[in-house]
Structures are given as structure tokens and as C-alpha cells.
Computed example of a mutant assay.
Amino acid sequence: MGKVLLTKAGQATIDMRKDDPSLVVTATLEWNGGSATRRRAGADLDLYALYVPRSLVTSPGQRPVKTDQAVYYRQLGSSVAPPYIALDGDSKVPGRETITIRRPDLQGYVLLCAYSAVENGTGSFKSYGAQVVVTDGRGSTVAVPLFNNRNLSYWVAIALIDFNVPGGVEIRHVEKYSGNHVEARPTLYSSGTFRMSTGKIEFKTR
């Protein structure tokens, strides 16, 4: 597929054989901290992967259930055992954090979110120069930018990875923000839908 830059509410599908045991999908949160003033004020962002295993996915018409499963800086996950989703670590300065997703045949949905540490102060995720980049390591790369300058949110849901698409994996630009100064993270449901500001409360200082 090559390189694709998603538009607002856009989506792209990476063609792949999900039964290929060597297939690895990576999702990276990149941010440069924005301006020098913004970096001095604080630029500690955290990548979260909220996920639904394929075994828990509900079909259309079934009642979806919410899930609390997440890989993030306090729960790094595993690439060799369930959930086969792992975070490489916690970067407290501008840079990148990467989620590695293996065994796509066992995955349902992965919602990629970013959290801004309270001590960063106010400032939009866009002002940090944040975006998510998803790749299959085989020449397909999907960049998911942010378009809105929402200054008072600690959370943003950036992209949804849908492993239920026949013959491939779909990446969708979702860009939804939490309420002003709300610490509760998003909630992902077994249908792939999600709600902001309704999940577990996180509080992190730099």
C-alpha cells in the first residue's frame, strides 16, 4: 500500500494474511513537543492501547460489553503471551512510544489513545506535534494526525485498528477528546465502539 496520511475521519486498509505467524503490526505515538515554549511547559505524553480480543468481539445485533483491558506504562503487556500486545516503555520527554501487536488472528479491536500528564499544564495534543503511525513492517504505513486544538483535555482517542476486516486490517481516524480536565480514560466496547471520559481514572505527574 505504501504510505498513507489519513484525512479527518478517514480510514485505510492494510491487506494482510492474518494467519501469518510472522506478521507484526506496530503503532507508534510520535510527538516533538511543539514549540520551545511548549516543551519547557511540559511534554510528557503516554500511549495507551485499549483492546478487545477477537474471542470477545460481539456481532451486530448483540449487546456489546465494555472492556477494561489496556496496555500502557503501568501495564506493558506481552508480545509472547496474551494479549500479544506490548509497549516498549515510558518516554517522559518528546519522542515516541511504540506498541507492538502480534498474533493478529487473535485480535479484535485496538483503540490507540494518548494521555497528557497533569503537570504538563494546558495545551492541545496537536500543539505537541502528536500523531500515530501504524505499519505492518512490509511497506505499508498509515499516519494518523490530529486536527483539533482542544486545550483542556487530558485524553484523546486517535485511531481505531479493526482486525475484523476480511483479508486485512483497517485503521480509522477517530480523534475524540475527553471532557475538560477529566481524568477518566476512554471505555472500549466489544463492538469496537467507545465512549470518552467513562473509564478508569488515571493520574500521573511527571
Rank of each mutant, 00 (worst) to 15 (best):
T122Y: 13
G2C: 04
S116G: 15
V144W: 03
R195F: 04
P53D: 12
P186C: 03
L188V: 08
I201W: 00
G61A: 03
N151Q: 14
K8S: 13
V174R: 01
T122C: 01
F147Y: 15
L112S: 10
Q75R: 10
L76I: 14
V93P: 00
V25K: 03
A43E: 10
D44H: 09
T187M: 03
N180I: 01
Y128M: 04
R206G: 13
V24G: 02
T37V: 11
L160G: 06
E183G: 07
A184W: 00
I101S: 02
I85W: 04
K176D: 12
P166M: 06
D19N: 11
V169Y: 04
S140F: 02
K176Q: 15
L146G: 09
E175V: 05
W31H: 14
N180K: 05
E183N: 09
T13F: 04
E175R: 00
A81S: 15
S190L: 05
I101T: 05
L188F: 06
T198R: 01
V65T: 11
I101Y: 02
K66A: 09
Y177H: 14
G121D: 13
D105P: 02
S153E: 13
K3C: 00
V165Q: 07
K204S: 07
K204T: 11
V133E: 12
D68L: 00
T141W: 02
T58L: 00
L29F: 14
Q75E: 08
A159E: 07
A41Q: 15
F147Q: 02
D68A: 07
D68V: 01
